[in-house]
């Protein structure tokens, strides 16, 4: 009887373990099935490189180059802001901060991760957007820069906690060896700890970026959503995620527009898959 129970529980856990892979697989199949139907109507090259996105016109113009560039620009901006701050924060928390400050900081960072993105978007809309507008003398504050700043806040918790973990798991002997050779604290961090934890830190950065590129709500609220090819951070952009979120409700099921949104989903899936695989490679390199 006990063996039987054991067997059942073991199998149940196995099913739970396989379930997530199974769901990912199903989601991917569904995405492919709905998205690939688009390419009967328009070639992949015209879809990826097309410069205008007018999905509900007759005939629809379905070029997502402005959307891809919009997503990449916002992500790049968020990375530029969040990586230095995030990594520096991780170094401080794991290497320098005294125990009590460390506890407070870690709790604070976890709290930052717990804020829903729509709340961040809302706060950004009423505080950051007017600030960006008056600061740079722009016609509107709904720009890629506003989106980047807000998303940097969202990427930071991921970057800090994983990078801190990576620094923490560097063997103590490395640090002690460096001190024994007469290195200062800063030299130890810069020359020994960071290189030793580099693959983990890179993984942290990649996962942070993965979070940014998939973020929807905050971006939709503060980037202006204009589907133009962006030339600077101070322009409105439209991201892949915001496009799907804003237009899925309207798309007539089975229309070109509907298929195009699924194809946008595939593009997004491919991008974040690539980012996650890269992060994984870095993480495994460490081990």
């Amino acid at each position: 009887m006990r063996k039987f129970k054991e067997f059942i529980i073991e199998k149940l856990i196995l099913i739970c373990g396989l379930a997530s892979i199974f769901f990912v697989f199903l989601i991917f199949l569904f995405l492919l099935k709905e998205g690939l139907a688009l390419f009967k109507i328009i070639t992949p090259l015209n879809f990826l490189m097309g410069k205008s996105w007018y999905p509900i016109s007759e005939p629809p113009q379905l070029g997502i180059l402005p959307l891809i560039l919009g997503s990449l620009l916002v992500t790049l901006g968020a990375a530029i802001i969040s990586i230095p701050i995030g990594v520096a924060c991780a170094i401080y928390v794991s290497e320098i901060a005294p125990q009590r400050i460390k506890e407070v900081l870690k709790a604070g960072i976890e709290l930052l991760a717990a804020i829903p993105s729509v709340v961040l978007g809302f706060i950004g809309m009423v505080t950051l957007v007017p600030w960006v507008k008056s600061m740079f003398g722009l016609p509107t504050g709904l720009t890629a820069l506003s989106g980047s700043i807000m998303l940097a806040f969202m990427a930071m918790p991921t970057i800090v906690s994983i990078a801190e973990d990576a620094l923490y798991s560097v063997p103590k002997t490395y640090k002690e060896g460096a001190f024994a050779l007469g290195a200062t604290h800063w030299q130890t961090i810069w020359r020994v700890m960071l290189p030793a934890a580099s693959s983990g830190i890179l993984a942290a950065v990649m996962l942070g970026i993965g979070r940014v590129i998939g973020e929807t709500m905050a971006v939709m609220m503060i980037t202006g959503n204009a589907a133009v090819i962006p030339h600077s951070f101070l322009q409105p952009v439209r991201t892949l995620t915001a496009t799907i979120a804003a237009e899925m409700g309207e798309a007539v099921v089975g229309s070109e527009h509907y298929f195009a949104l699924f194809a946008v989903g595939i593009v997004l899936f491919v991008i974040s898959f690539a980012i996650n695989v890269t992060a994984d490679l870095f993480l495994h390199k460490r081990k």
Partner: peptide
């Protein structure tokens, strides 16, 4: 006709969002 909204037009998700932006932006 083939006229479209200018690609640079900001797409806002609600009428209220447009009302708020117009209230705060003399160029809008």
């Amino acid at each position: 006709a083939k006229d479209e909204f200018a690609p640079g037009a900001l797409m806002l998700s609600s009428s209220q969002a447009i009302a708020d932006e117009v209230a705060g932006n003399p160029q809008a």
